[in-house]
Amino acid sequence: MLPISYGTAIIVFCIGLYTILSKRNLFKTVIGLSLMEGGVLMLITSSGYVPGGVPALLPFAGGEPVNPLPHSFTLTAIVIGAADVALALAFIIKIHRRYGTVDIDKIRGLRG
């Protein structure tokens, strides 16, 4: 069970990376970033897995609770990721104003 969960997480991460590396649309780049982040968060959450665990809400009804620590920092990381994505989108709007395109290969005003 656990290997599948880890594997999925890594696959999601790789899909995100592939998206960033191969897509030219800026929005897709941001989607790729979100996917990568999703992959990492899945990885973290998986590490808190306890066989037959119950939610970490007191009182624990019938069994051992799952590890609550990964949950808490997944929550934190989600919020941070959301902030990043929001900021990236805001930047894209601004960039589109200047360049009239969202093609990442055409936004090359600064180089060398």
Binding site: L33, D84, L87, A88, G109
Partner: peptide, 18 residues
Amino acid sequence: QAIEAGFKYLIFGTVGAL
């Protein structure tokens, strides 16, 4: 320039953070 630089920094920074 500032916007473009900021955006590049953002993409790099986010990848780094990941």
